[in-house]
Each structure stands twice: as structure tokens, then as C-alpha cells.
Nucleic acid binder design. Sequence first.
DNA 1: TAGTTTTCTGAAAGTTATTTTCAATTTCCC
DNA 2: GGGAAATTGAAAATAACTTTCAGAAAACTA
Lengths: 143, 143
Amino acid sequence: MDRVATFNEFLREKGLKNTSQRMLILEAFLNSDSHYSTEDLYLKLRQDNPKIGYATVHRTLKLLAESGLAIELNFGDGQARFEPVHEAEHHDHLVCTKCGLIIEFEEPRVEALQNEVAKRYNFMIQSHRHELYGLCQDCAKKA
Amino acid sequence: MDRVATFNEFLREKGLKNTSQRMLILEAFLNSDSHYSTEDLYLKLRQDNPKIGYATVHRTLKLLAESGLAIELNFGDGQARFEPVHEAEHHDHLVCTKCGLIIEFEEPRVEALQNEVAKRYNFMIQSHRHELYGLCQDCAKKA
DNA sequence: TAGTTTTCTGAAAGTTATTTTCAATTTCCC
DNA sequence: GGGAAATTGAAAATAACTTTCAGAAAACTA
């Protein structure tokens, strides 16, 4: 089942409706590997669909997060970002504090340690965030 | 040098002034192991100092973060929290999504892996955040 | 598939947390 | 102590969401 179908099923289960706006937003969201903020995606969609509203984009992104198709990220700049979830893949982020570059990384050994920590505290992990902040190669060179 | 002295030196270097409010806030902040939001600390300080302003508390917490005496945390609930830095100790957090409990943990092996990842991308780490979200022992029991 | 019910949408207003402004006050440096 | 420069608290301003509401669209129902 592709992700459009997954989202439709999610909507049906929730008693929500499948609208043209939701499909537009879903498509634009999936066809990118960016880390969109509501504002970013809103502005992008406006280019082809001048009538779409900010609130609708935001509500749909929240729905996508709820449905598991998106993950909400917060890098501490006061703007939530949303990232498409690519099944069976997990990664975390390096964030350049100078230019804003976001690099994704995977490190299964960290996940293993997380589980160990959780066990230590009888904690049941639902999700996690792991972000490294600093300077990317280019910015470090310039500094 | 204790942390009050450290902060005073920071102020002096920045050409800022040492005021009674800043000392009050610093003291209240250090004498706690909580994860205060501006609001939390403001309300606490108000009990003994009804005249202190929210903006002053917030500005001082920002200064503390800038001086390295505090770390600004964001657990995604839309409120920044500040935590005293205890030198030579580093920890991350388990956050209960049900009751809000915050547990601190240390895991040096994660730090080692982080450095490895950074090297892989020629990235210069300045800071990081690592948070595990889920249910604490009590909430998991009730669920 | 027409009618009815329910959910959606977009614009605008409302929130919430944080930040800035500004006039009065307080420091700090001679 | 005098005076420039920073600080304070209250209130206004911002920024990022979130909610409201009336008209529009989808889904259900007979």
C-alpha cells in the first residue's frame, strides 16, 4: 500500500474526509526530502494554488504526523518542521547552527544504547530525538 | 570560582551590569535541580519579590544560557526550559509523555558514538540534545 | 443520486510564549 | 558624587500556532 492509500485509510478510520486540498498537501509533502515548516510548505503550495490557506496546510501536516506518515521535528528555532517517514529507515540529525544545513545520519548502535537506558529506568520508549548541533564542514572552514 | 562569580565575570566581560534582580534570579535558579520554564521561575520568584518582572526573568535566563551556566531545553511542548549546568557532568533526558516526569540519564558510550558520527561528516559538534519520549514506569503500569 | 448530515476550508480573530519598547531607575566608572 | 550607559517592569509587539465561523465540499442514506 503506498502512502497516499495509507493516508486515505487513516482518514476513513477517523471519520475524516478526503479532500482535494489534503491530497495536494500530501503529494507536495511526499515529493520532497526537505524538512518543511508549515510556512515553507504553505508558500510552496501557494505558487500553484493561490487559494490554499495556511491553516489547512498546518492542520494537514498535523494529521500527517498523527497518521505516522510524517514526523514533527523541532530544532529549537521556534518553528516546527515536518519530515516524511520512510518506512524501515530511521535517522537523526546534524544541524548547522550557522547556515541551517541539516544532515541526516543513522547509527543503529545509538538505538541499542537507548534501549539499554530505557530498561535501566523501566521506561517504555515511544520516540526519541537526537540532534547534534554545530558547524558543518563549510562553515567550520570559514570560521 | 563558584557560579555566582562566573556569572559576574561574564557580565563584566560583556559590559553588562550586576543588578539585584539578576542575582536573585541566578540564586533561585541555581538552588534548584528543576527544569524551569520562564513562567515557573517567574512565579516562584514572585512569592518573595512581588515586583520582579517576567521580562527580567526571561532576559536573565537567556543570559545564563549564553554564559554557559544554563542550558535551554525544549521538549516540544512549546515552552522552553532551563537547566543549571553542573560542570563535568553531562546528561540527557527521558520525558514521560503522560505525566511530564523528567528523568536524567548519562551514557558516555552515546557521546563516543556522536563523535564518531560527527567525524564521518566532518562536522564540528558544539552541543547536542538527546531525548527519549515515552511512558515512565508508573504511567506504563496504568496504561 | 438527490437530499441530508457532517466535515472542511480559508480568512480572520484568538492564543501562547517570547521579545521588544520606553520612560523611570539603577549601576558603574571616573 | 556626577553622569553616561545599562536595566527594569509594564505594556505593546511579534511569531507561530490554533480556533472560530459561515460558506463549500464530501460522504452517507434512502
